[in-house]
Design a binder for these strands. Structure first.
Length: 402
DNA sequence: TCTGGGGTCCTAGGACCC
DNA sequence: TCTGGGGTCCTAGGACCC
């Protein structure tokens, strides 16, 4: 989907079309910001001057999506709000409305599945589609079907998307970026040398910032540069697995199937504080946040029908260093108090003397709640036992999960 | 006043079992 | 008395993706 989060907002606020708009960062719903003053008007009639500007933004957020006019100023995804404000202070800033975005996500995926049922979910705004056996899927190299999908999505939602058609997922992903927005690009196996090799290494899905730096140090800048190396040389420099994969990727080789179903591996909740907190000085505040994270993970598990066995915590210190600890239980759980107690024990194993920026709680080793092997014999729950462990908690538990 | 939140997968060492 | 492997699970960290 093209600039998905921003495009969804523009459907509500068409008066912002053509303007630099960035989505992200904020915790307040925009309706609260605007509707107080313009309660008597429909959303589309709220004057442009009433929208909050990036230059007035205060906080630690990053940009989730920028409209194409905003991108002209060098503003883009994952950029800190404060940095973006310097590049484009006049941009309008709106918070993410996850419920609304999820609704449109379900809608566009549903439309695609009606046309071509083999769809792999790749997050909220992206899918892989296997055209191979769809009637008409091969016409004009897939262009006819791609156009049909685009037209169907736009008619139903007003949103646009870009589609790459190729013999495998790796190339299709790169092709999808060739003609944004609202574009279609078809790349054949024989086009790899001319269309893929000139691209920077970072365009390969799987080569991130770290590998890019390392490749640059080895004087490899384009995908063609990688393809020109022997597989053994890449293995020597990047390890057996990653090196061999990198060689294949540079040559456009990828035999991964389109996977239509998958089970979640973990569920987590984390939050970055408005200001750095200290385990002792901000004990009560941290304790309340900690309990809230555990409660929300437990809710997520129950709502989706899962239980988990490994409970973990994640800290980010003020210097951005990350520490994780986890502990595997004997029994599966989706219980907030059990998660809170176990996560509390994990907390005892990290350095809490430093200022904290982020706290997270994770539950892994998931199983479907209705497919558990056999419910273990109920050991005495023992309120006294739980209470004694709770007294060991490092964070005072103001909200009370007991 | 740089730098979100929710994920997956991989690696590597150590415990433990056979 | 000295010295084995293979396999699995757990844990911590890190790269990467949307």
């Amino acid at each position: 989907m093209d600039a998905f989060f921003a495009s969804v907002e523009l459907l509500r606020y068409p008066q912002l079309k053509g303007l630099p708009v960035v989505i992200g960062g904020g915790r307040r719903k925009v309706d609260e910001l605007l509707l107080d003053r313009f309660a008597d008007r429909p959303l589309g009639k709220i004057p442009v001057e009433a929208f909050p500007l990036l230059k007035d933004y205060v906080g630690r957020g990053v940009i989730t999506t920028a409209t194409y006019p905003a991108r002209q100023f060098g503003v883009g995804s994952a950029m800190g709000m404060m940095k973006a404000a310097k590049l484009c202070p006049q941009a309008i800033v709106l918070p993410v409305d996850f419920d609304e975005v999820r609704r449109y996500s379900r809608t566009f995926k549903g439309i695609i599945r009606e046309i071509a049922p083999l769809v792999e979910d790749r997050g909220i705004d992206e899918v892989y589609i296997d055209f191979t056996d769809v009637p008409g899927g091969q016409r004009e190299g897939g262009r006819v079907l791609a156009r049909l999908i685009q037209k169907s999505i736009t008619e139903a939602t007003g949103l646009t998307c870009s589609i790459g058609v190729a013999p495998n997922k790796l190339i299709a992903k790169m092709a999808s970026e060739f003609n944004k927005p609202n574009g279609i690009s078809i790349v054949h196996e024989a086009d790899v040398q001319t269309k893929i090799w000139p691209l920077p290494v970072r365009k390969i899905n799987g080569i991130g910032p770290k590998s890019e730096v390392k490749l640059h140090k080895l004087h490899l800048h384009t995908i063609g540069d990688i393809a020109a190396q022997s597989q053994q040389w890449l293995i020597d420099n990047f390890g057996q697995s990653y090196g061999a994969w990198m060689h294949d990727a540079a040559w456009g080789r990828d035999d991964r199937p389109v996977v239509t179903e998958s089970e979640p591996v973990s569920m987590s909740r984390e939050t970055t504080f408005d200001r750095d907190l200290h385990a002792v000085r901000d004990r009560d505040e941290l304790g309340a946040i900690f309990t809230d994270l555990c409660t929300r993970v437990a809710e997520d598990l129950r709502r989706k029908g899962y239980v988990g066995k490994t409970i973990g915590i994640k800290l980010r210190y003020d210097d951005f260093q990350i520490a994780t600890r986890d502990q595997t239980l004997e029994q599966y759980t989706a219980d907030a108090a059990t998660i809170r107690r176990t996560a509390g024990q994990c907390l005892k194993r990290v350095d809490l003397g430093r200022r904290l920026r982020l706290l997270g709680v994770r539950v892994g080793k998931l199983a479907r709640a209705d497919e558990l092997p056999a419910p273990p014999p109920a050991a005495e729950p023992g309120a006294a036992h739980i209470a004694s462990e709770r007294t060991l908690d490092l964070f005072a538990d103001q909200a009370g999960t007991g």
